[in-house]
């Protein structure tokens, strides 16, 4: 795990401030930006994967049965998946406290 930025001293930095842990941004939560989240209806899903390919976050994955779901740790709730799902298997619902 990368040390949080507020705890890094100058001595902790790699030469030239290189980041050596590839893709460590995946530790960073963007899901809390969301005001709506996608709900996937597997009865309507035809497993085409358009939601997966069109997700700007790359946070939609396919499970063992071939259905899709969004990783809410990252999902910012843009609604592209719901808009592009032509069998209308995805709907956006408001995030509530």
């Amino acid at each position: 795990m990368t040390k949080p930025e507020g705890e890094l001293t100058w001595r902790d930095l790699e030469i030239g401030s290189i980041v050596t842990e590839a893709g460590n941004a995946s530790q960073y939560q963007t899901g809390d930006w969301r005001s709506e989240r996608p709900i996937f209806d597997n009865n309507k899903c035809i497993k085409c994967g358009l939601c997966y390919i069109f997700c700007p976050e790359g946070c939609i994955g396919q499970n063992a049965e071939g259905y899709f779901d969004a990783d809410l740790f990252y999902c910012k709730g843009c609604g592209i998946c719901a808009r592009e799902c032509w069998p209308k298997a995805i709907s956006m619902v408001p995030e509530e406290e």
């Binding site: 530790q27 700007p56 910012k76 592209i80």
Partner: peptide, 10 residues
Amino acid sequence: FAPGHRACIG
């Protein structure tokens, strides 16, 4: 291109 990037929504 890993998730956790800070692009605007959509």
